[in-house]
């Protein structure tokens, strides 16, 4: 039952994730170096936020060719839980583990703020502790969070329940006014068809303790843990 957090050159949210797993969930957790070629016995891999390789070329584009990513692809293909947060989400789309792509924000500005999200699918190992339609507050901090995918793929993602979180207003209504970055269909987080890989722009690790004003995010990590125990 061990969590692993990958560090790329330029990652900067790995310690927040480490803190939540170790001191809030009280679970074993280790860092994984991007240049490693072997992956130890982990139950869940976290790709943290940051600016891997300076976001050069495209956010996540270069990280996708780091040594360890090959092993992480295998891990994901074998059903292992992978969660990509912010830059981690960008790496997952670049590597093809998740569909679509993340473009520059609609208004070309870095957005850093708390934001309400509507939980769209609770039948995933990451969202099983939420209620469908529940509004959770999780902050975003990104420049390239404008999710895009072609219409056909979007329709198939909707059908197979791959849309997990959408930006909404405080009442849970998903409308254009509450779309911070121009994402298609207000998408903030998605998963793959098998539902073992999730990517999201908001940062749940930043709202995982009541002392920080909100613990809406901790339920994602707790859900992973509960589901890991079930699988075992």
């Amino acid at each position: 039952m061990k969590f692993g957090i990958v560090i790329f050159p330029g990652s900067n949210c790995e310690r927040d994730c480490y803190h939540v797993i170790k001191n809030v969930l009280h679970q074993p957790v280790e860092y994984i170096w991007h240049a490693d070629t072997e992956l130890a016995d982990f139950s869940c891999i976290i790709l943290p936020g940051g600016f891997s390789y300076g976001d050069y070329l495209r956010a996540g584009a270069i990280a996708h060719f780091a040594n360890i990513m090959e092993k992480i692809k295998e891990f994901a293909e074998n059903g292992g839980y992978v969660i990509g947060i912010c830059n981690g989400f960008q790496i997952l789309t670049e590597s093809g583990l998740l569909p679509g792509a993340l473009q520059r924000n609609r208004d070309l500005k870095f957005i850093c703020k708390n934001i309400p999200l509507r939980v769209e699918n609770t039948k995933t190992p990451f969202t099983s502790r939420y209620q469908e339609g529940q509004v959770v507050n999780i902050p975003v901090a990104h420049m390239e969070g404008n999710y895009t995918v072609d219409k056909k793929k979007l329709a198939s993602m909707k059908k197979s329940g791959q849309i997990i979180f959408r930006y909404c207003n405080a009442e849970g209504e998903v409308d254009e006014a509450s779309n911070p970055n121009g994402s298609i269909a207000n998408i903030a987080g998605i998963c793959n068809r098998k539902k073992n890989v999730i990517g999201m722009m908001p940062h749940p690790e930043r709202v995982s303790e009541k002392e920080l004003g909100c613990d809406d995010g901790v339920h994602i990590f707790l859900a992973i843990l509960e589901n890991m125990l079930k699988v075992k």
């Binding site: 070329l57 495209r58 060719f65 670049e94 569909p99 473009q103 995918v149």
Partner: peptide, 8 residues
């Protein structure tokens, strides 16, 4: 492989 993202 790298220079362009074929999705977009």
């Amino acid at each position: 492989k790298l220079l362009a993202n074929p999705v977009i």
